[in-house]
Amino acid sequence: MSLPAILLFLLFNYLPMGGIILAFKDFRYDLGILASDWVGWSNFEFFFTSQDAWLILRNTIGLNLIFLAVGLTLSVFVALLLNELRGNRLVKTYQTIMFFPYFLSWVVVSYAFYAFLSTRSGILNQLFHVLGLESVSWYTEAHYWPFILTFAAVWKGLGYWTVIFYAALIAIDQDYYEAAAIDGAGKLRVVLSVTLPMLLPIILVMALLQVGRILNADFGLFWFLPMQVGMLYETTQVIDTYVYRALSVTGDVGIGAATSLFQSTVGLLLIWGANLLVRRVHRESALF
């Protein structure tokens, strides 16, 4: 039954993986991938010898963890609320509207945010002005950006994640609720003892899969939203944007391949470890 998927994965994912050797090569167009010279680990040096390597790693991992924690909590919470309102006509409207941000590409989101945050003509500063507050120069002050980025990431994905958890909630057998109701359990108890445990597998799987991508930043978010203002790099530079910027100067395919191999390997180790852990706690939810 899985054959079509396996074939597609082989063609579009596994076959190109041969190109991972580029990470160890000095790629020349005229020689091609196979005939280019081997250069050992030197392509990996680029990232690790950079002065900002630690800062960039901190931003990537830290922000990804925050996004994951806030995003998961909020979307599970909203799904639970919507579940309470089940049958209400407004649920559909809420869901639809929550999905709006997901339709916008990051470029467009960056424009929308700019309309609010622009120092001169932004809506927020206009509002501050009316309220008699000092206007804020959002695009020069790095310390606001962890919040702005978290807001944007959670805001854009909220509808998407909520739908997943909501769909999982619908699938819970009514019998469980009825049994709980007969036991005379209060609303909160039902949520804690019936709903959440039923949601646990899907939460775990989502979290597991995200942990594997802890070093991979959402490129569009970090590239477009801060408008590439250098003064914000302290909190907005992540591995993907750093390497992308380097590639546009050096045009070096090897550096890109090396960095992504590093990201993937760390991801694999993390997923593997997390999976072991999950297998202890909740056997069925383990990925493999």
């Binding site: 010898t49 950079s50 590439q228 203002v229 250098g230 790099y233 910027r245 380097a246 100067v249 050096t250």
Partner: peptide, 18 residues
């Protein structure tokens, strides 16, 4: 010297507008 070039360029990108 591509690694050095990329890093110096990154520094100017960071400070240039300032």
């Amino acid at each position: 010297v591509k690694k050095e070039i990329a890093q110096v360029d990154a520094i100017w990108q960071q400070y240039g507008r300032l």
